[in-house]
Design a protein around this nucleic acid. Structure first.
Lengths: 242, 242
DNA sequence: GTCAAAAGGTTCATGAACAGACCATTGACG
DNA sequence: CGTCAATGGTCTGTTCATGAACCTTTTGAC
């Protein structure tokens, strides 16, 4: 038999994950994240409940509970009748105004490490895809939107959207999910970075480098650019929080 | 407001994931995967039910249902009383003997892409950690175990264990989970690769390159080596199934 | 103006999952 | 040789989640 005197017990501990929370919390979390990350923008409608429930693989009752929670938190409002529905009223808070969120040191480090792996990976993959004209325009527009964001709050959101766009163009569902999770985990902390003109402009330049490399199909360059970008953010965050 | 005429609707579709399957299936899947990947070796005991249930974040009843399923599949046997418990009886099937598994083309490509991102990422991170003597020995031993595996079946398993070990040493729970998922997704297909002496030896050399780089703290080299390794496997698989 | 379609709101019966108490078995140890 | 602690096995009441049917409100189309 294969002996493994040293690592015995190490793997089970590492591999067995504490599985799923309950449906309600999961759903609230997911929708709230999507809204905060700008997947659904201000003023936009969520899909009808029946449809959304199906997409989330969750019963309509549970979804409704979740939406009720969002409503209570002021993220959305709901109107009945034809043309009604649930629409997003959330406006991102001004970055820097937020209290430095509870510092879960280990979780933060994990999220930063994870992000530094999956986002550059997504950029690399995206650059290797054969992108359609639409997709190219979307990517460019997403980057431009970050530059054009009128205020820090919408900047934050546009930035998330850009990163998710890159992930989406990688074409790998597993990677998309990973990037989403990383963004969600970092979201509140990124929101705490004070927004200096210099940082923003630098960050946008890095976005452009990523976009350029992806459009040229230069995968290695795309990855390197995204790594640089992640490292920069990471440094800011670590410096800020600890 | 930020206009996004192009990507409208793209992100919601990409980001909203079809959430959790039921607890029973999830648990069976997770345990079966852990066993097949060699997280629990042949003849070894699973933790006591109460403990395992807690670690999996699942009620004991559900866990027991899952274990019953494993028992039915012949992966484990159970004995009561002090010193009893559930022990692993699974022996990996001889690779190549398996029917080329159902080819879910898209899922396969996704898993390969994903793996090619997260495994090198894990190697990179592991190389940057300040590893203890124990951890170093474990890594070396894991790689050696792959070389020393007496037959193709245990080779397959030792290989999984090695990759999970690297992930574990990255120290990032999110990455560990990702690597586990990638390995699980590819597990059955990797089992279908005919095992040629040349491939094995080549693969082990690549493992050694990874180990060496990690031990030296040469993150870039570690990543590059792991990429090469993933690409090689990937090529074999695509050739075989695609 | 009317009406039908498209939304959200309500209710209820059924099954899944959980927590916890308790039972049964068995081997380790005194 | 006996005992008791560690382990799996069983039962039960409660809570969560689902699915499906049905109700209410609103508005755009005719």
């Amino acid at each position: 038999m294969t002996e493994s005197p040293l690592g015995a017990g190490r793997l089970p501990e590492a591999v067995l994950r504490p599985a799923t929370a309950n449906v309600f919390e999961t759903t609230v979390e997911q929708l709230a994240t999507a809204i905060r990350l700008g997947v659904f923008e201000h003023g936009q409608h969520l899909p009808p409940e029946r449809e959304l429930a199906e997409r989330l693989g969750v019963s309509r009752s549970s979804l409704r509970d979740a939406i009720a929670a969002l409503r209570t938190s002021g993220l959305v409002t709901t109107r009945r009748g034809r043309g009604g529905g649930t629409l997003v009223t959330y406006v991102a808070p001004v970055p820097g105004s937020a209290r430095p969120p509870v510092r879960r040191g280990v979780a933060l480090a994990d999220a930063l490490d994870f992000r530094r792996v999956v986002e550059p990976g997504a950029a690399w993959l995206a650059a290797r895809q054969d992108l359609s004209g639409d997709q190219r325009s979307w990517l460019v527009a997403s980057a431009a939107a970050v530059r054009d964001a009128p205020d820090p709050a919408s900047h934050r959101m546009a930035d998330s959207r850009f990163h998710l766009a890159v992930a989406t163009l990688s074409g790998s569902p597993m990677l998309i999910e990973s990037v989403t999770r990383a963004q969600a985990a970092l979201g509140e902390m990124l929101g705490a970075i004070p927004v200096l003109e210099r940082n923003i402009s630098h960050s946008c330049d890095q976005h452009d480098a990523v976009v350029g490399a992806i459009l040229r199909g230069d995968a290695d360059r795309a990855r390197a650019a995204m790594e640089e970008h992640c490292d920069a953010t990471s440094a800011l965050l670590r410096g800020l929080l600890g």
